[in-house]
Amino acid sequence: MVSRPYYLLIRMSSGTEQREPDHVRTLGHEEYDPIGTAILIGIYFLILVLLWIFMYFVEFLGNGPTVVGMALTVVGLA
């Protein structure tokens, strides 16, 4: 029923796993690609970028008047 070679059907010996009857296979580091994680975190990245742009350029810069420098202050430290 499970076709891919690295899906090993095992029973965990550890007592903690007794509550996990649906543990069906064991994946090692090499054969596991967290593709779902990559997708989720990609979505998160997009949300962050879009909301940042919205917050900075629409909400913040649109919320004037704003404190401005008498002369242009150039921040160049660090």
Binding site: F45, L48, V49, W52, Y56, F60, L61, T66, V67, V68, G69, M70, L72, T73, V74, V75
Partner: peptide, 22 residues
Amino acid sequence: VLIVGFIATITYGAVGPGIAMI
């Protein structure tokens, strides 16, 4: 990239629209 982008935006705010901190 995100972190540098944030810092760049804020630096732009200081230099472009000329926003100064107290």
